[in-house]
Each structure stands twice: as structure tokens, then as C-alpha cells.
Design a protein around this nucleic acid. Structure first.
Length: 455
DNA sequence: GAAGAATAGACAGAGGCTGC
DNA sequence: GCAGCCTCTGTCTATTCTTC
């Protein structure tokens, strides 16, 4: 295939279509506006600001959730403790026990910090109006007014929606207050840590009330506060939603060609062009791109076979759904048309970017040669700058665009999409069920047309 | 199917850093 | 000097799987 033969197929937008697309993209996404406002209005209690009393409570709770043996009843499944190098997240130190960390603990702890932040927020600002120290006890999860108040506070901050965040918090409350296995009904001594006006009540009845409230909220939490499709709706409405991404790659190449040869700016632009191209070709999760390695002896995740074909391979543990998709490793080819771009990046541009850390084996490292944890942010910037048809979008949205486009052109070929995304077939069938419906109606329309033309 | 566990991702502001 | 890349940190939400 001639160089640039694929690129020449891309129709060039007119000034007018560009203007229309830019105007469409400017229509604000409510979630993003809301988040902008919320980010300026902080309320969470920072982990380092947790009181000694709460840390003592936390230790007992954490032990209860992770110990092989416990005196209290609990749900059958324990929280898993793993060695530090097996955990993908940076955990607070209090989520470690015997040198092993617990990812679930950090998620639960974050909810605690959020709840305590609400409790200690002045009531004039929509909070519960407690002092910082008195707010920090698990006992508040057994106070119906506090639980209900926090759920409503969340609702206000999400513009009135009752979303998955509510369901998550409600599930936590339900689990803590469960009559049989919940931690709180078995720890009535915690009631003494509440403010006097809340301390003289029936503990079991309060736990039961909170359990009931949380069940109701969990059932009601059906809104979608952040619709992943919002930023890319402009693309999904196009007959060829991938073309604007190809155009973006083309523009990045043009800018790189105009940059000073050998400069970091040129290398950055070429890196971005490769990143976008690879995201479209093998739409894996951002995490896989952050951790992707390449080594000259071809033993990394990105490697070249003797026949010159570039491929990507990952072991099951590298995936979010490691146990669900397959026990075999992921080993997929990259389009041959990308071969030259990959080689060029590795030979010419990556060395410029890793100047201070030549030993790194990451394909897309940060400037210190370590994991580029803000890769998502860069994709957002690139798409924001070079794709006027949509709002800025991240790597995960590209998975959605690729899957949607492919299924529209190959109706019902869900197995291929499951392979492309490295997701379970059942997951793909569920997420893209609406496209199945589209296809059914399309075929019914053909049937109606055939009936009409035969009479 | 529900509950619980485990985890990834989206997006923001502020400000430091750096290449041009 | 400055634009823009990048990191840090904070806020918020969605997804996927296993077990009962």
C-alpha cells in the first residue's frame, strides 16, 4: 500500500461544516459544569486529618473485614489483602495490614471521608453542622437523619440526579446496618460516641431504620448523572465517526512537520499521533497504554515479530476483568499500516522524550521515565484541540466509538467487538443492546419496503 | 437476581516546569 | 517571557465480577 493512501481517502471538511461542528461542541455538558462548580467547593475530610479516635475505630473495622477469624458475624467474603506490587492504586497507609494492602478498604475509606466531610460542613452550606471531631465516627451511619441528609446533599451536588454514587453509598450503609451480619448492630457501644442529642436512642431500631432508608435509595438510584456518550455524541451522529480522529492524527503530523526537527515539541506531537492511532487500532483501557512496555529484544508488551508485524500482548492480570475474559494472554496484531509510525516513534521521537531516563521500558512514559498516569488528560487535550465535532473526550470514549461504529457496519457481530475491547461477550451484548434494536428495526423497514414494492 | 467486592475512569483547578 | 505540557490533588461516577 502506498504511503498516505489511507489518509487520502479522508474527506476534508469545509469551513462551514467545521463551524457547525464547533458550535455543536460548544453546547455545555451539564455534568462537566456541575463538576467544575463542585471542585471549587471542597468538603471531604483528608485522610491525614482523620482523628485518633476514628483511626482506632477504623483499625478495628479493618481487622474485622480482613481477619481470617473474627468474633463478630460478617458477610462471607473478606476484603482481599494483596502485596503492594499487585495493587494498581496508591493506597493510604491505613489501608495496609501486615504489609499487604486492600483496594476495597481505600474505596470504603473515601466514602467515610466524604460522609464525615458532609457531617462537619456548616448547616448554612448544606451540611450537617457538626464539629470536625464529633463527625468522625462510624456511629453516624446508624443515624437516619445523617444518612438521609448526606444522600440528599449528594443529590443537590449532582443537580438533582439520584445516580450510581447514591447506590454505592446506600449499599455501604445497608451492609453496615444489616441485621444479621452488619458491623454496627453488633457494636452498640459506638452509640456513646455520638453527640448527646443523638446518643439517647434505640440503637437497633436506628440501624434498622438506616437499613430501610438505604434500601429505598438504592432502588431509586436509576439516574445517569454522567452519560459517557455526551462528549462524543457529535461523533456518534456521523456516518463515519472515526474520520475526525484520523483527521486529528493528520493534523498532529502536520504540526510535527512544522516543528523544529529533533525538538521535544515535534516528539510530543508524534507521540500523540501514535497514541491516538493505537487507541483506535487496539482500543484497550487507558491503564494498558500507561503500563505498556517495549524492549529492544522484543520481550515487552509491544513487540515486533520476525515477519515485521507489530503486536500487543498482555497477561490476564493486566486487565480489569482479568478472570472473566480469558485465562489466555492477550496477543493481538496492530495494523500493518501503523508499523512505520511505531518504528519511527521508537527510533526518533521516544528517545527525545525519555532523555533523562533512557533505561525506561515504557512505550509512553512521563517526562521522568515513570508511568504516565495523566495519559487520559493528554488524550482529552488532543481531542479537544483537534476534533471540533465533539467535546474533549478520553481513551475510554474511543472504545465506545470504535465498538459503535463497527457494530453499525457489522450488525450483530458482537464476538468481534468483545475481542476488540477484551470484554466478555455478555457485557458487550448488554452495553450495545440498543444497536441490536436499531438493526432489527432496519431489517423490518426493509421488509416493509419489500412488501410495498411487490404490490 | 441481589449483595458485596473489586476496580477503572472522567474531569476539574492550581501551579510548577520547560522548551522555544 | 510565555504558552502549553504535565503533575498533583480533589470530586464524582460507572463498570465488572463473584458469591450466595
Amino acid at each position: 500500500m502506498e504511503r498516505d493512501s489511507l489518509r487520502s481517502l479522508i474527506p476534508q471538511p469545509t469551513k462551514e461544516t467545521n463551524r457547525e461542528r464547533a458550535q455543536a461542541a460548544k453546547r455545555a455538558i451539564p455534568y462537566r459544569e456541575q463538576l467544575r462548580a463542585n471542585t471549587c467547593d471542597k468538603y471531604l475530610v483528608h485522610v491525614t486529618s482523620l482523628s485518633k479516635q476514628f483511626l482506632s475505630e477504623w483499625n478495628e473495622f479493618f481487622e474485622h473485614k480482613t481477619s481470617t477469624q473474627t468474633t463478630l458475624r460478617r458477610a462471607k467474603r473478606l476484603w482481599r489483602l494483596l502485596p503492594k506490587d499487585k495493587i494498581g492504586l496508591d493506597l493510604p497507609t491505613i489501608c495496609y495490614r501486615f504489609g499487604r494492602g486492600c483496594a476495597t478498604a481505600s474505596f470504603v475509606l473515601r466514602r467515610f471521608c466524604s460522609f464525615f466531610g458532609y457531617l462537619s460542613r456548616p448547616s448554612s452550606d448544606g451540611g450537617f453542622g457538626l464539629g470536625a471531631d464529633e463527625a468522625q465516627t462510624l456511629a453516624w451511619f446508624a443515624v437516619p437523619e445523617a444518612v438521609k441528609g448526606y444522600l440528599e446533599f449528594m443529590q443537590t451536588r449532582s443537580g438533582g440526579a439520584t445516580h450510581g454514587g447514591h447506590a454505592g453509598f446506600a449499599a455501604l450503609v445497608a451492609s453496615l446496618t444489616n441485621e444479621g451480619t452488619g458491623y454496627l448492630p453488633q457494636c452498640p457501644q459506638l452509640a456513646a460516641r455520638l453527640s448527646p442529642s443523638f446518643a439517647t436512642f434505640d440503637w437497633d431500631a436506628s440501624c434498622a431504620k438506616c437499613h430501610e432508608i438505604s434500601k429505598q435509595w438504592k432502588q431509586a438510584a436509576t439516574d445517569i448523572s454522567r452519560n459517557p456518550e455526551d462528549p462524543i455524541r457529535g461523533l456518534l451522529n456521523l456516518s463515519e465517526p472515526l474520520l475526525p480522529i484520523f483527521r486529528a492524527v493528520e493534523k498532529l503530523d502536520e504540526k510535527a512537520a512544522a516543528a523544529v526537527p529533533g525538538s521535544k515539541a515535534e516528539a510530543t506531537l508524534k507521540r500523540d499521533a501514535l497514541l491516538l492511532s493505537m487507541l483506535v487500532a487496539n482500543p484497550l483501557r487507558a491503564r494498558n497504554f500507561m503500563s505498556m512496555t517495549w524492549r529492544p529484544d522484543q520481550t515487552g508488551n509491544l513487540y515486533r515479530r520476525e515477519d515485521g508485524q507489530w503486536r500487543l500482548r498482555f497477561v490476564p492480570a493486566d486487565f480489569k476483568n482479568k478472570s472473566a475474559t480469558s485465562n489466555q494472554q492477550y496477543d493481538a496484531p496492530l495494523p500493518r499500516a501503523l508499523g512505520e509510525r511505531i518504528q519511527e516513534y521508537l527510533d526518533e521521537f521516544r528517545p527525545v522524550l525519555i532523555g533523562s531516563a533512557p533505561a525506561t521500558d515504557l512505550v509512553f512514559p512521563n517526562k521522568t521515565g515513570r508511568k504516565w498516569t495523566t495519559l487520559n488528560r493528554q488524550v482529552l487535550r488532543i481531542t479537544g484541540a483537534f476534533i471540533p465535532e465533539a467535546h474533549p473526550f478520553g481513551p475510554h470514549a474511543i472504545r465506545h466509538i470504535v465498538a459503535t461504529d463497527y457494530l453499525r457496519k457489522h450488525p450483530n457481530d458482537f464476538p468481534t467487538v468483545a475481542q476488540l475491547l477484551n470484554d466478555k461477550l455478555e457485557t458487550v451484548l448488554r452495553v450495545y443492546a440498543h444497536l441490536r434494536q436499531d438493526d432489527s428495526f432496519g431489517r423490518y423497514e426493509e421488509h416493509l419496503n419489500a412488501v410495498r414494492s411487490s404490490h
